[in-house]
Design a protein around this nucleic acid. Structure first.
Lengths: 200, 200
DNA sequence: ATATTTGTTGAGCGAACGCTCATTAACTGC
DNA sequence: GCAGTTAATGAGCGTTCGCTCAACAAATAT
């Protein structure tokens, strides 16, 4: 019974994520969303309740996808420490891909909404903490495999790592060229690898 | 001749800088500015032409003040390398000061305006490059004083240094507590000091 | 005093904002 | 076919947006 939906919810959320990621919460208008989702205002509200709620759904998508990608990458790398270093080098390879030439959406959101949308900001802080936790797990894994000294504070390393990721994404956003991106990523990656215990 | 202005242009620009810095370009409304500057719309437009122009004036102020502060700090530090390290440690001491618990306004602006206000974004990119140049000068000075190897690439160090500053400011924005701020700043500062040539 | 100049005022402009809802369309069950 | 159910539509709601301008106020010059 009943009429089937014309739109593909998954595709619509993907599209919403991209516009929001690119323009931010405040600069994205309902008109922008109507165009991107190819849906009329009534349908958007029927499906997603409000602009803010749609934003939260898009953000959740971004978060889950980022963490999943990171975990998948770590899962097929024999050395966790190398995996972490490679994750940083990966950003230098995004130079061509224009859709990814952007700041981290979580970073962006926190900046956009701290002063104006406490609910979104609070959720974002949680996501950022979760991402940091995933990074910390990577370092813990490295420690368990004997790549790091047993006294290593993985939480501290994770915070620094997150800083490196932010810095790289910001450089992408800035438009920094391939060569500079590569050398910056390489330096940050080497810092990670330098933590490895050398068999003396 | 003629009627004198009721407002203090300098104070008004300071106030504008603070609101814009806190809320960003898009989330700051004329109402917000009327309140912050204690001026009526007509006066604001008489004095500053447009919201965008006022933003550019506020941004310019932020930029000049930041660079001046950095240069002044470096000028009264005998060792440039220590000065750079101390600059990073300084951010951990901002934990109390709520007005400064924010991302760098240049970072914020670039993110806010890249997709929507090309003119502001272009100006911001220039400012960010100028700041990086000021950092590079600090490293050059350190090199000239024999604190760094003569083959050191100061431009690369400056880019990393700017990344560290961004990371610290972002942690402030996030609300990271005093202890974590101090340890993060300390680590980043030590990385700078570790570059120093050791008298062997 | 008066003329001139310039700053201040705030009601209100047109446009855009996020959002709603009566109406219409497309399906299923009988 | 028709009744029942749910999705899609888009004109248009009330509000707020950035901004203007005719009227007024406060100074100087003569």
């Amino acid at each position: 019974m009943s009429r089937p939906t014309r739109y593909d919810r998954d595709a619509a959320l993907d599209a919403a994520m991209l516009v929001f990621w690119e323009k931010g919460f405040h600069a994205t208008s309902l008109k922008d969303l109507e165009t991107a989702l190819d849906m009329k205002p009534g349908s958007i509200y029927g499906a997603f309740s409000s602009k803010e709620n749609l934003y939260l759904l898009a953000l959740d998508r971004y978060f889950k996808r980022s963490v999943a990608r990171f975990r998948a990458h770590m899962a097929d790398t024999p050395s966790p420490l190398t995996g972490l270093a490679e994750h940083l080098r990966g950003f230098a390879r995004m130079t061509q891909d224009n859709t990814s030439r952007q700041v981290c959406m979580l970073t962006r959101t926190l900046i956009d909404t701290t002063a104006t949308n406490p609910e979104i900001a609070a959720r974002t802080k949680q996501y950022l903490a979760d991402v940091r936790h995933a990074f910390a797990e990577g370092f813990e894994h490295a420690k368990a495999m004997g790549e790091l000294p047993s006294h290593t504070d993985c939480a501290v390393l994770a915070r620094r790592f997150q800083g490196s990721v932010s810095a790289l994404r910001f450089e992408l956003h800035l438009g920094t060229d391939q060569a500079d991106m590569t050398s910056l990523a390489e330096e940050l990656a080497r810092d990670i690898e330098a933590l490895r215990i050398r068999a003396t």
